[in-house]
Write a protein that binds this DNA or RNA. Structure first.
Lengths: 199, 199, 199, 199
DNA sequence: CATGAATGAGGCTTCATTCAT
DNA sequence: AATGAATGAAGCCTCATTCAT
């Protein structure tokens, strides 16, 4: 990855996250990157390729890592005795990730709707790497009697938007509000635990 | 609203919800509507105006009505003794609304990100009509001891994505899944009540 | 065919025949036609489509008509007792055709090499319409003892370039030479008859 | 001519003959030649220069040699008693030349139309070297009473396309047909002799 | 009111050519 | 001599918008 390439990606992320993929012209990206327009196409065959180059790693990093590599181990190494601990770790981790990747996440969310191939890539990542790991963890805590006996799909369907909703509100909808992050994270954890935990 | 106008709106909703605003050309809309391209611009000065004409009513209908007109009354007429009842009514109502307005909601969600003016309109509607009503209701049930003592903003920030997440999953992400709607609605209500209710 | 369309075709023929398809830009054609560049694409979806629209009719008119419609009839109505008469009529006819379609023929010859689809179209026309008719005529005159017993393919392979070579030399290679057309046509006929006729 | 240069020429001939000059990019040539794109421009100032470097020798070799060097001598050394012998030698010679230079000849024929300077070069070669020699030979055989009393220009105008037409048909239009080369060459000679010879 | 041909600005992309390494 | 990243001019094409009919 040459310095010019980095500038291009950087510029593209900045502008696309602000105005959206379709409202951003390659000439604009080139100008912002301080590069000739042709240079973009030396590195990315099409404008779409550039988008994919931006979005692909985010897909990986946004959902995969925690689960694929450490998550399951952690769970069974009892590093998180209670589901609540695990949830808390997870939310804090994703919070930090979101905090330092706002533009990328904005782009991913916005463009997911319009690019079936990106959608597919996302879905695949999710179904192959995230879902099995989470499902396994949920089963584990269900057996420990910490979770209600709901289908895993339902649980995920409820936790997912809760966390995503929190992060989107926090960083995209009202980024300038005076947030007490610690408290709000705690409340989100409580909300989820209240909603799916066993009393 | 002439019959031609209706055809235009109808066609625009169909195509834009499928392919997105930017991937839909006015000529395509005209063809689908069985109308000359010029006719569109006789009724809507710009393509953007057409989008606004589509999206504006949805903004109203998607968040306002229940609250603005009947909601508060209902609450104080004790038509819903418990918050859970109110919540259940609300979710079922929004469920039906979503069911019969999928394309419109798709458009609204997708384009909200790229059109600051639509965002503003949405925000205004929300802050002026929805928030006060909901807030009032929450206070009422808090006093009745049915809700935890959380800031209203936080409660809304948690309920909102939960419901929206359910509807989006149900109708957009996995519309073809074999859903047991009754059950899933009940679970969603329980999830929320568990999360914010007092035990 | 609107007047603008005619202007476009006219301009395209002029410039492409002078400079070749690839050296001619659509903006140049538009300017020469006194039309906006976009107008070209309203009538012809691509630049290639424009070329095909120009070339297709020439394919038809350059080889098909004489044979398909009148040729065979004429032969069997003994309107041409000798092969020489038929040949003379044919060459004169093609001579006149070439004279009034020089740019079109130039384009056809030049671009045939680079556009496999046009080639195919040409080949099809030739094999389906021209070859059978000519072959039939040749057989007829062979039986009359006027032609040597050569395979029809060979005869056509020799007559074709002779006539084409004459026309190309006459109208493209040396259009400004002081030609005695009558004489030169007669000589061409004699050359062919000498080459394939029976003494 | 360095080995790199040879690779470049070789690659250029291959690709340009297949796809034409304008449809071949210098980067493609570089890749096929296993050379950096810049290297092409170190040896040939422009893409056009490269084409000329390819085409120039073919112009020489395709029409000049036989005549310029050995032809005239041969004629007056009576190495060919009859015109037919000379013609036969010539066609066989050009046949072999064509056989081993198909791509080059393809390029020459195709690009001649679009490059006035190459045309000029061709014309000059022809007028200065070929025409006088051939003309002299024709006069010689006319005096011997073997040829009809036609203008040399006319004779050349008829023989040229006949031979060229044969070679183009044989090697470019229908290279895969099952040709009996010996027979077909003989027929071509007979066709020409029949057409211009004295009975 | 409706039409649809015409417009022309602007977008993406290609590619011959240059130049620092 | 060779490289190949960078350039930017120019090409094809799309599409929202206008306007004469």
């Amino acid at each position: 990855m040459t310095p010019k390439q980095e500038k291009i990606i950087e510029a593209a992320i900045k502008i696309i996250s602000e105005k959206g993929y379709h409202n951003t012209s390659t000439s604009e990206i080139a100008k912002q990157a301080g590069v000739a327009e042709g240079t973009i196409f030396r590195h990315y065959r099409t404008k779409k390729d550039l988008l994919v180059a931006i979005v692909s790693p985010v897909i990986m990093k946004s959902i995969v890592p925690i689960f694929a590599e450490k998550f399951v181990d952690q769970v069974f190494q009892q590093s998180h005795e209670h589901f609540e601990d695990l949830l808390c770790t997870f939310i804090k981790n994703r919070f930090e990730f979101a905090k330092s990747n706002i533009p990328l996440i904005k782009i991913l969310i916005q463009e997911l709707a319009f690019h079936p191939d990106i959608q597919a890539s996302f879905k695949t990542s999710f179904m192959e790497k995230v879902y099995p790991a989470v499902s396994q963890a949920l089963d584990y805590y269900k057996e420990k009697g910490e979770l209600q006996d709901l289908p895993n799909e339902t649980i995920i369907r409820m936790i997912g938007p809760t966390i995503l909703g929190f992060l989107v509100t926090r960083f995209i909808v009202q980024p300038n509000k005076d947030w007490e992050d610690e408290v709000e994270i705690k409340r989100t954890v409580n909300y989820i635990i209240g909603g799916i935990g066993l009393r």
